[in-house]
Design a protein around this nucleic acid. Structure first.
Lengths: 333, 333
DNA sequence: TTGTACGCGTTATCAG
DNA sequence: CTGATAACGCGTACAA
């Protein structure tokens, strides 16, 4: 509520001097600094970051755009970014895109118009061209879980194709050949890549991909439920089920048991992402680890290095998923 | 990048006129409006919301402070608030407090300094006095899951005491009398209230509260695990376990099975919150519904009504938890 | 080391 | 209906 002007008056110095003690960079004599500090605390002065931002064209805050605010995946991602940035004294402004092109663009413009020093995006509906165009603007752009050609240096991504391959391959190594697959929404690049990896593993093992053992889910619990229901109603036989994320795997597990399956004996199930709850399904979920929290940290480090000039930070742009073996996949005898 | 000034030049009108067409309220002739609109799109003009905010003292955005960005509880809360506000064209600025006093205050000041039209707080470490002091400032304050005396009109809260009572009472009604309790961190009011409800139910049924069947957990999976481990190592006998939230219940379920328990036969377990994954534990978790998503919507409605003058909105300040009966609690014979 | 004065991009209050 | 012009709160050359 109090302004820099009132502080300067009370301290008997000029506006500029007050500004100088706020931005600890330029030199002020110790005596006047004390006077100013005293005046500030007496007035309960707090810098107006809006005005600071307008005047300096910086904001000490980075924007984050995620698809959703709920769900273990985005939660881990946001937490990773935020904790890294917060430790460096930077704030985070979060908004959402809901996987819809209009909302994603709206969110991006909001963040840009708020003068964020950089923005970290997890966008799914928007085109590569849009992103490339965006990256030419004055606000630096960084991308999570997405690899855009020409912007490799600004991307932190996971090799989803490899993850998909690992999942299917591990299932095949366990003696399964009749394998059902519940994919994620195919407009999402992650989902496509995971499916591609699945198909590669099948091909390498001379197993034909079957349309009737394929279902496109929604990445939520209901997707796993609906997918399994679909496979069962179409009288397919299969000994293993691959779900493109853990939420769908959870849904499938629950539905399978409702249908009288004994797990994992009757059906092996594998997920993807390794969300915390994957340790608490029954049987404990075998899955592919997606180090999304780590990737969040890395994205934050990337902006600390590039935007806030922090040195001695080494960046990993590309992450590799790994197989987490638990109890939900067994040998098919 | 383009400013209102360039637009006015290109359109051949004054700054003020451009500002008028941006803020659709005051009247501009159709002809000049078209000229301005054309100029805006030709230049790709986007209002700088920082400058708007500085000049108008409004920001069309509301601040949210939560303890953590991850976890099903906060996810649902943020999602509820955001979706309601977004539908009304308002943006949301989210930051965190990590349940630490300093960080909570820092977060609050960040939001205030960003000129939020209102802020919605889920604070746990900060005192009632601080909040009351805060509420005297120029930025309107609203509170989630916390009831502060004197600020009832700005609070959206859950009757946690009742929830705690319901949980324990339902367990008792199932014939249990040796009941272990894993509480949440006791510096959190929610945890205290849930525990108080537990004790009331015990007292009403003439069951003594036993210190040796009490453990203070951390509201995470490990809390459930650690709590159960503690009870088992201390050779207590009990037929039911109450966990102050679902994460701890999940951890307890997993650990119980690792220890060879057959659930729910050997041990009945009840949780609190009814997070989505409570439907996917095995056995499916009996729990207390905490309508946190709804409460988020309601908090958003409250600011829409009070701050953005939306009419015909009816507000519920106080929510009641309900028992969700699933499979993890059985009759003690 | 300190002060003056201008600019950041808009809104808002006046006149006209 | 439209146009000057003063705020908004602060950063930052430039001068002193």
């Amino acid at each position: 509520m109090a302004t820099i002007y009132e502080v300067s008056k009370l301290a008997g110095v000029s506006l500029a001097t007050v500004s100088r003690v706020i931005n600890k960079n330029s030199r002020v004599s110790d005596k006047t600094r004390q006077k100013v500090l005293a005046a500030m605390s007496e007035l309960g002065y707090r810098p107006n970051s809006i005005a600071q931002s307008l005047a300096s064209n910086r904001s000490n805050s980075v924007g984050i755009l995620v698809s959703e605010l709920h769900g273990p995946f985005f939660g881990q991602m946001m937490a990773g970014i935020e904790s890294e940035l917060r430790a460096a004294g930077k704030h985070v402004i979060i908004t959402t895109g809901h996987s819809e092109e209009d909302k994603e663009k709206d969110g991006v413009e909001f963040l840009i118009s708020r003068n964020c020093d950089a923005i970290i995006l997890h966008v799914e509906a928007v085109s590569d061209e849009y992103i490339i165009e965006l990256s030419k603007g004055k606000t630096p752009i960084y991308l999570m879980s997405r690899l855009v050609e020409g912007l490799e240096e600004q991307c932190i991504s996971l090799n989803n194709e490899l993850g998909g391959y690992l999942a299917t391959n591990s299932i095949i190594q366990q003696g399964h050949s009749a394998i059902a697959y519940i994919a994620g929404p195919q407009f999402k690049a992650d989902s496509q890549d995971r499916l591609a990896g699945h198909k590669r593993a099948l091909a390498e093992n001379n197993i034909a991909f079957s349309d009737t053992l394929y279902f496109e889910g929604d990445f939520k619990e209901t997707g796993g439920r609906d997918g399994l229901k679909y496979f069962l109603s179409s009288k397919q036989t299969f000994s293993a089920l691959i779900c493109a994320n853990d939420e769908m795997a959870s849904g499938a597990i629950t539905f399978a048991r409702e249908q009288g399956f004994s797990l994992p004996k009757n059906l092996s199930i594998i997920g993807f992402d390794n969300i915390i709850f994957a340790q608490h399904t029954y049987p404990k979920l075998t899955t592919i680890d997606n180090p999304v929290n780590l990737m969040g940290h890395m994205a934050a480090k990337l902006v600390l290095k590039n935007i806030y000039q922090q040195k001695n930070i080494s960046i990993t742009h590309s992450f590799e998923p790994t197989l987490i073996t638990r109890d939900s996949v067994v040998f098919n005898s």
